[in-house]
């Protein structure tokens, strides 16, 4: 970085109609950065504050949370009725909704919501015996929230076992036990895997 009172003047151009910033000529890094800037600008335009600056993260806009909660509830209902495909769809919508939160809202909240929704979607996928999708969803759920997510760990482990990837399942479950030791479900699954390995070899 240069000293505090100098900067490099970049060849930036603004499109007068769309207000999009572009550079001419541009290298790849600059182009990426400007894309991010334009996306953020579009997001900022819809922010409701009088000053046009993003509000502080802590008091969250409740409408979106309510919508997500509603979608999750209807997904749960469909799941209970046995319409698993419909439940997967609804959970997917809720996940998109949660990920569509403005990026300046708390990321911890997004993690929490998305982790729960992905875990539910994994369950709905498992109920349809879509083991591959279930495994991916559960993995994503765990990635969003590692601790206190025994269901997520268990679901991916189960999916891997069902697909016959016993080695992978074993390491996965062992990792899961490091995060939530003494989870009865995980311990049970681990024993199952060991039994199967002993049986198949």
């Amino acid at each position: 970085m240069e000293s505090a009172d100098t900067f490099t003047l970049l060849p930036l151009v603004m499109d007068p109609a769309t207000k999009a910033i572009s550079a001419n000529p541009a290298n790849a890094a600059l182009k990426n950065e400007l894309e991010a800037l334009n996306a953020l600008h579009r997001g900022l335009l819809s922010v409701g504050t009088p000053t046009g600056t993003p509000p502080p993260p802590v008091p969250v806009n409740p409408t979106r949370s309510a919508q997500i909660g509603k979608l999750r509830e209807s997904g749960n209902n469909e799941f209970r009725k046995g319409n698993h495909a419909q439940a997967v769809k609804l959970y997917g919508l809720a996940i998109d909704m949660a990920l569509g939160r403005p990026h300046w809202e708390p990321s911890g909240l997004v993690r929490e919501e998305v982790s729960g929704l992905l875990s539910n979607r994994a369950q709905a996928n498992m109920a349809q015996q879509n083991w591959a999708e279930g495994a991916v969803d559960a993995e994503a759920s765990v990635e969003m929230k590692k601790a206190d997510n025994a269901k997520g760990w268990w679901r991916r482990g189960k999916c891997l076992v069902e697909m016959g990837r016993l080695e992978e399942a074993e390491t996965w479950v062992r990792q899961g036990l490091e995060f939530g030791a003494n989870e009865p479900d995980l311990v049970q699954l681990k024993q199952d895997i060991e039994k199967r390995k002993a049986g198949s070899v």
Binding site: M1, F7, T8, L9, L10, L12, M14, P16, K19, I21, A29, L30, E33, L34, A36, L37, L40, H41, L44, L45, G52, T53, P54, W104
Partner: peptide, 28 residues
Amino acid sequence: LQRDIYLSLLHQEDPKVPDSILKAALLR
């Protein structure tokens, strides 16, 4: 890069860059 973009935009005179873009650039 972000600092250079922000300052370049800030110093652009013709046409003047609207505040909302400057805010976004400052956030970046």
